[in-house]
């Protein structure tokens, strides 16, 4: 790691992830990647190319076999599981292909859960923040519904709201529109783009959808666990 502070908010330095076993499987190999503030990055590639694995490594959900991931220039390889969890809580927001909302809780509860875990806001402030997010995502009237009372697109929007709850600078999305119809896909994509354009956050999204990837500002293409191309488009 260099002594000077870089512009990257999240970076991978020679990251390799090998799944141990009788036949070890290399998920990603020698990944060097610097992602700056306010970038809207698509990670693309064929199935099995290591897109999601790279996202989980960048999101500190997985630990590299070799190399290091830095968040805000801070190396994370020596952090224990609890410290990584805390960094996730403060800095990262996740959106998955499936909404993964807690089914027993209301929309509002699901969004306040990360805030309650962080514990920096009063209960009233948490509720206000959750309602603000729901309003911003066009779901102000769905606060007290449970996930099973919402459509797929609505659930995914709630998942985005939950990811934004603690105001993280980085949003990591794994196929966020993979299970949505075209209308919902467009809604969710617009939200993610708005997060970048209006709020200046960094969004890194794994996607199979080439059209969507083309509309994002940078595209990192993986093949067989390695970066094949890394193209930044003009905004």
């Amino acid at each position: 790691m260099s002594g000077s502070k870089s512009n990257s908010i999240i970076s991978a330095h020679g990251v390799t992830r090998i799944l141990p076993g009788t036949v070890p499987v290399t998920l990603v190999k020698d990944i060097d990647l610097e992602i700056g503030h306010g970038e809207f990055v698509a990670i693309t590639g064929p199935s099995g190319s290591g897109k999601s694995s790279l996202l989980y490594l960048l999101g500190l959900l997985d630990v590299p076999t070799e190399g290091a991931v830095h968040i805000n220039d801070m190396p994370t390889e020596n952090l224990d599981a609890d410290a990584r969890a805390h960094l996730r809580l403060e800095t990262l927001g996740f959106v998955f292909q499936f909404h993964f909302l807690l089914p027993e809780f209301t929309t509002l509860d699901n969004i306040t859960i990360p805030m309650r875990r962080l514990g920096r806001r009063s209960r009233k402030e948490m509720d206000e923040r959750a309602r603000e997010l729901l309003e911003a995502l066009g779901m102000g009237d769905q606060a007290h519904k449970r996930p099973d009372q919402l459509s797929g697109g609505q659930r995914q929007r709630v998942a985005v709201a939950r990811a934004l709850a603690n105001d993280p600078p980085i949003i990591l999305a794994d196929e966020p529109t993979g299970s949505l119809d075209s209308k919902s896909t467009e809604q969710v994509f617009s939200i993610l783009k708005g997060i970048v354009d209006k709020e200046g956050r960094t969004v890194v999204a794994v996607t199979h959808d080439i059209d969507l990837a083309d509309r994002m500002y940078r595209r990192v293409h993986l093949i067989d666990g390695r970066i094949d191309t890394d193209v930044t488009a003009r905004r």
Partner: peptide
């Protein structure tokens, strides 16, 4: 187990 995974991804520690 899925909820556990999602809670962990949100930033819940093993202790939580």
């Amino acid at each position: 187990s899925r909820d556990i995974a999602i809670l962990k991804s949100l930033g819940f520690a093993e202790r939580d």
